[in-house]
Every structure is written in structure tokens, then in C-alpha cells.
Simulated assay, not measured.
Amino acid sequence: MEMETLQKEMIAAMKARDKVRKDAISGLVSAAKKVAIDEGCRDDIKEELVNRVILKELKTVKEQIDSCPESRPDLKEEYQARYDIYQEFAPAMMSAEEVEKFITEKFADVLASKNKGMIMKNVMPELKGKADGKVINQVVAKLCQ
């Protein structure tokens, strides 16, 4: 997701007077800018950085939904609305089949060792932000058998 696209969506939500959507997108923009400043690239915010922030915020709000007490349906509804909005902007994750194909094509030499730790060490940096860690772990475990 491009930072400019995110900002345009926020402006559109402001014009539509959609406070919930505007607040959610504003939170993503703020988080992306903060990470960019921390990493020293405030003027040139890359798409990879924005996607990483969106995934992190998505995970955070999912944990909020899961840990929200049943006695607070108002809070749970607010978290769910934010989660749904974040989901719109989240990058598409690779499926288990795509991960398996990627690993077998690009890491055939490491895969031949059947050493799960070594495979994970090589594969994880390549797939970070592109596939769910649980899916990667399951695929690697299957390929090591």
C-alpha cells in the first residue's frame, strides 16, 4: 500500500464525514510516519514499510478483539470496525501452495538438507510480510518429512 493512497483514503473518509473510517486510517498513517521517522526515512516512505505497519496494526487490533471482555460489546464493535478497515489495506498473503512452490523453487539446495532450522533461517527473511509465519512453518514441516 502506497502512503499517498492511504492519505487519499483518509481525506475521502473526512469528506464523507465517516469518523470511524477516518480515525482508523489516520491511525495507520500516524503509525507509518512514526516508523518511518524511527528508521530515518521520513521523506521517502516505502510501500514495504507501510505494509509492515498495516500488518502490525492488524495483529494488534485482532488481539484487542480477542481479549475484549464480553461485558463490553461497544468496545468489541469498535475494534471489529477498525479490524475490517485495516483488512481492506492489508497486503494479500501467500497461500500454503504459493509458499511451498516458492520454497521448492528458490531454496531447493537448502531443502535437500532436511534441516528445518536451516531452512527456516533462509526462508523467513524472504517471506517476511508476504506470508503468515504459521503457514510457512507448516509448509516447511511438511517438506522436511
Rank of each mutant, 00 (worst) to 15 (best):
E2R: 12
E2H: 10
M3W: 03
E4Y: 11
A12G: 09
A12K: 14
A12R: 15
A13H: 00
M14F: 12
K15E: 15
A16K: 12
R17F: 12
V20Q: 13
R21P: 00
K22F: 06
S26A: 11
G27L: 07
S30W: 10
S30G: 15
A31Q: 04
A31C: 05
K33D: 08
K33A: 10
A36M: 05
I37C: 04
E39S: 08
E39P: 03
C41W: 05
C41T: 12
R42M: 14
E48A: 14
L49H: 01
L49R: 00
N51S: 07
N51A: 03
N51F: 01
R52W: 05
R52N: 07
R52T: 11
V53W: 03
K59C: 05
Q64T: 03
I65Q: 01
D66Q: 14
S67P: 11
P69G: 04
E70F: 09
R72Q: 12
D74K: 06
E77K: 14
E78V: 15
Y79L: 04
Y79G: 02
Y79Q: 04
Q80E: 09
A81L: 15
R82M: 03
R82N: 01
Q87W: 08
A90K: 04
A90F: 09
P91G: 09
M93E: 08
S95T: 15
E98R: 02
E100D: 12
T104F: 01
T104W: 00
E105D: 13
D109A: 15
S113D: 11
N115L: 07
G117V: 02
M118A: 13
I119R: 01
G129Q: 07
K130L: 04
A131K: 01
K134Y: 12
I136D: 02
N137K: 14
N137D: 14
V140T: 10
A141H: 06
L143N: 02
